[in-house]
Simulated scan of single mutants.
Amino acid sequence: MNKRFISILKYLFFLGLGIFLVWWSLHQIPKEKWGDFKKDLATANYWLVIPVFVVLALSHLLRALRWNILMQPMGYKPHITNTFFAVMIGYLANLAVPRLGEVLKCTILARYEKVPAEKLVGTIVAERAVDVISLGIVFFLALITQFDVLGAYGTELFRQLFENKRGSFSPLRIIIALIVLLLILLAIRIWFRQFSHLKVVILAKKILKGIWEGLSSIGKLKNKRAFILYSVGIWGLYIFGTWIGLLATSGTSHLGLQHAVAALAFGSIGMIVTPGGIGAYAYFIAKVLEQNDIPFETGFANGTLQWFAQFIIVVIVGALSLLLLPVYNKKKEVPVSL
């Protein structure tokens, strides 16, 4: 079984998961609530797609500027236009095949800016490492700003997990869970040592090493302040864009930035779980809004609209970038006549 076939199977699996979540979410809506779901979609303010478009386009531009900073220590300074085109084409490619965009945007810069593709891999790892940390901060902010809701929800889940059949708290279950966790960690450690020759272990070590090296490379940047500001700006715009999206449906228009933070945190999980976040993005947003007394059908309608807006933006800007990239670079190569 070759790698391409395995990649196709993985993609089909996660695409199937996304389609299943769409089906499952729709079946979570009671029959008597279908009218409300359709009404939320029919009465939504679709004009808000325009400010969301601007906000997300700015976040992608900041991402391109941040990527350029990561290339500077290697002695490369690509034109920001080419970097932006590469970022958007990468997002477009990810809609078709997850992670293809990471390879493609490196290939584009290697072709048009003469930056060796293999040297760009480290910058991609660094970006992903920073994004993971940023998402962790967003989750922390969500917990702080909505502790009364998310904290209670988490406590309830924790209580249900560790209560016995009579409904009372069971310390024994916690002890068993901790023992199992320690055994898993011990098994992983032994596995890494005893089976270090296996391809899976070698790959896992490379991934962990790559993440560490990516984070370490940030400390060597000359323009650390700009890198941090761009990172804050990217996620700040994500939060702002999500809040504008909440204004689109009447049932969620009264929600504030704290709700947008929580929606972004959980919605981002959906973007990771399925290709392009299909099904999962709207489902997770609906579930977190449900904790704020928003009916599931209303939250799912809003999450669907927000997902569709992001999808359309990537398709339009990505396709334009694909068309304009060769045109821009052709003009660049034309000699100036004196």
Rank of each mutant, 00 (worst) to 15 (best):
Ile278Asp: 03
Leu325Tyr: 03
Gly241Trp: 02
Gly270His: 03
Thr252Gln: 15
Ala286Ile: 11
Phe227Ser: 07
Glu213Arg: 02
Gln291Met: 07
Gly270Glu: 05
Ile285Tyr: 12
Phe284His: 04
Ser250Gly: 13
Ala309Lys: 01
Ile278Met: 11
Leu320His: 01
Thr298Asn: 10
Thr298Gly: 03
Gln258Gly: 09
Ala226Thr: 10
Ile285Gly: 11
Ile272His: 02
Lys206Arg: 15
Ala263Trp: 06
Gly267Val: 12
Val314Met: 12
Ala260Glu: 11
Asn292Cys: 13
Leu305Gly: 12
Val261Met: 10
Gly251Ser: 13
Arg225Gly: 05
Gly251Ala: 14
Gly210Gln: 14
Val317His: 02
Lys222Tyr: 10
Pro295Ser: 06
Asn292Trp: 12
Thr274Asp: 05
Leu237Cys: 07
Pro295Thr: 06
Leu322Pro: 07
Ala248Ile: 06
Ile218Pro: 06
Ile312Arg: 00
Leu221Gly: 05
Leu323Asn: 05
Lys332Phe: 10
Ile234Pro: 01
Trp235Thr: 02
Ile294Gln: 08
Gly236Val: 13
Ala265Pro: 10
His259Met: 05
Ile244Thr: 05
Gly219Asn: 12
Val336Ala: 13
Ile312Asn: 03
Ile312Ser: 08
Pro275Leu: 10
Ile316Met: 04
Ile244Asp: 08
Gly245His: 01
Ala282Val: 12
Lys222Asn: 12
Phe296Lys: 10
Ala309Asn: 04
Phe296Tyr: 15
Ile218Glu: 07
Ala226Ile: 03
Leu264Ile: 13
Ser321Trp: 01
Ile211Asp: 07
Leu320Trp: 02
Ser253Phe: 04
Ile211Gly: 06
Trp212Gly: 00
Gly276Asn: 04
Thr274Asn: 07
Ile269Phe: 15
Val315Tyr: 08
Leu221Asp: 07
Ile312Gly: 05
Val288Trp: 06
Ala280Asn: 09
His259Asp: 07
Phe296His: 11
Ser321Phe: 01
Thr249Phe: 07
Ala265Met: 07
Lys222Asp: 10
Phe284Leu: 11
Gly236Leu: 14
Val315Pro: 07
Lys206Val: 14
Leu221Met: 09
Ala282Cys: 14
Tyr238Asn: 11
Phe240Ala: 09
Gly279Arg: 01
Ala282Trp: 09
Ile316Val: 15
Ile313Arg: 02
Lys331Trp: 14
Arg225Asp: 06
Gly279Ser: 08
Ile316Pro: 00
Leu322Thr: 14
Thr249Arg: 09
Thr304Asn: 01
Asn329Asp: 15
Ile218Thr: 08
Phe266Gly: 03
Lys287Pro: 02
Ile211Trp: 03
Trp212Thr: 00
Thr304Lys: 00
Ala309Arg: 00
Ser268Glu: 04
Ile312Asp: 04
Ser231Lys: 14
Leu289Lys: 01
Gly303Tyr: 00
Ile228Pro: 04
His259Ser: 06
Ile312Trp: 02
Val327Pro: 05
Ala319Phe: 13
Gly277Gln: 03
